[in-house]
Amino acid sequence: MTRKQRRASLIGAGLVILAAAVGLVLTALQDNIVFFYSPSDIAERGTEPGERLRLGGLVAEESVVRGEGTDVRFDVTDFAATVTVTYSGTLPDLFREGQGVVTEGVLGADGVFVADTVLAKHDENYMPPEVADALKRTGNWQGEGAEKSHSETYGEGTYP
């Protein structure tokens, strides 16, 4: 092979691998991204049946009901709308009424969200950014930038 052909074969191999990678990334992006919804989004826009999605908001006060075994049922609210969630398994350490939470799963035909993942992590003051944004949109945000000071809202301590 001449120098030119060799270079061409190398570049060719590179392009093939790159094209395959791009193709994989694009198909995977089409099928495997999960959109975030707040309870109001679900009320306004609805969802595709069977679509996997993330639902986030605050765990409504006095809504957590423990059922058989490890089943648990609670409401996720952004104060404008509320969605009931069912979940089976251990809840994260920081799951608490009145705290921010993100759940992932499928919305059933009966309007109950069946979650297989519940995230509430890292810090008592932690607010998932999506939840914070959703609350800001509905005017119920009480964190940074709101009128109340941190210590009033969260008690003394560090704010991340």
Binding site: A21, L24, V25, T27, A28, L29, D31, N32, I33, V34, F35, F36, R54, E104, E130, D133
Partner: peptide, 14 residues
């Protein structure tokens, strides 16, 4: 401003 999450299935496929 659209919120999405890309989880393990994406990486498993790519």
């Amino acid at each position: 401003g659209e919120k999405i999450s890309v989880g393990p299935p994406f990486f498993n496929m790519t």
